[in-house]
Design a protein around this nucleic acid. Structure first.
Ligand SMILES: [Zn+2]
Ligand SMILES: [Zn+2]
Ligand SMILES: [Zn+2]
Ligand SMILES: [Zn+2]
Lengths: 145, 145
DNA sequence: TTGTAAATGAAAATCATTTACAAGTAGGTG
DNA sequence: CACCTACTTGTAAATGATTTTCATTTACAA
């Protein structure tokens, strides 16, 4: 999915098509995995100039509601965003807490968890599955200390 | 492990044995899965009276550092604590976002993740693996709306 | 008992995120 | 096109969990 398809989807949901929203949508879809709100804001400002943090968050909220962007929580005190719906292309991460280096985890336990949850009548809405650690080079530096 | 063993461990690590710390350690070990800092504070106050939030957080930090308590992140904007080290008795959760009902998940993907991480030289320090959703009764209420 | 480094609590600071609200705008209607 | 009105915006302030600051108190080794 490219930004224009996402943009159309928002229109179909009745959201007004404003300049600011378009910029945010473009930037989020131009970026990759795990983008921070602050980072999205500054990228939008490089292109446009006038855009505010509340608008970034509001637009991200609607993108998440529309199932076009995923919200990812790494337990590091802030939220990350990435293009893609909850089903489509969904994946998990391995992140270096020192340098931020990141890679995707191939495995996804969602199916197993849903099965286990179903037994007690639980309906899973969000699966947090993220690993934080040290990449090879940061682990090496750590050892030298 | 009971609170007195944990208490001894802290002593062996060179921490001073203060009244306040003892109360926090007792309460955390008296509680079960997923205790919030606010809840721990108020339970401590019922027993003692004079204890402050910073002290609760500071004591929890040292318990986590000492590997006696786990910090759990459910992606709900706050942190939960539970007695037990990272290896010993470690488990994951299924939590109802409406009523807070919780249960343990039998499955733990840590081994698989570590294996996958090892291939790229990553060392896993924290594995966040938590499912948030709706329990049977809250899902039923939700449907009526 | 004393000295001193560590620990405490009150209050203030952080920091990501959200809200309030006055001013601006998209998009439909006539 | 002109107008209306509900929806959006940005600024500034609020939030809420957690952390820091700092003056005061305390544990504990000598
Ligand atoms: Zn990703
Ligand atoms: Zn690294
Ligand atoms: Zn638990
Ligand atoms: Zn429930």
């Amino acid at each position: 999915m490219d930004w224009q398809q996402a943009w159309d989807q928002l229109g179909q949901r009745g959201y007004r098509k404003t300049q600011q929203r378009m910029i945010v949508v473009k930037e989020v879809f131009a970026g990759g995995c795990l983008q921070g709100a602050e980072e999205i804001l500054s990228r939008c400002r490089e292109k446009d100039g006038g855009i505010s943090m509340p608008t970034v968050y509001r637009t991200l909220d609607m993108l998440v509601d529309a199932g076009l962007v995923r919200r990812v929580n790494l337990g590091l005190g802030r939220t990350w965003f990435e293009p893609g719906g909850p089903d489509d292309d969904h994946h998990h991460h391995l992140v270096c807490e020192q340098c931020g280096k990141r890679e995707k985890i191939a495995l996804c336990p969602l199916g197993i968890v849903e099965n286990e949850a179903k037994r007690s009548g639980f309906k899973v809405r969000e699966l947090h599955f993220e690993a934080v650690g040290l990449c090879r080079s940061c682990a090496a530096k750590e050892r030298k200390k």
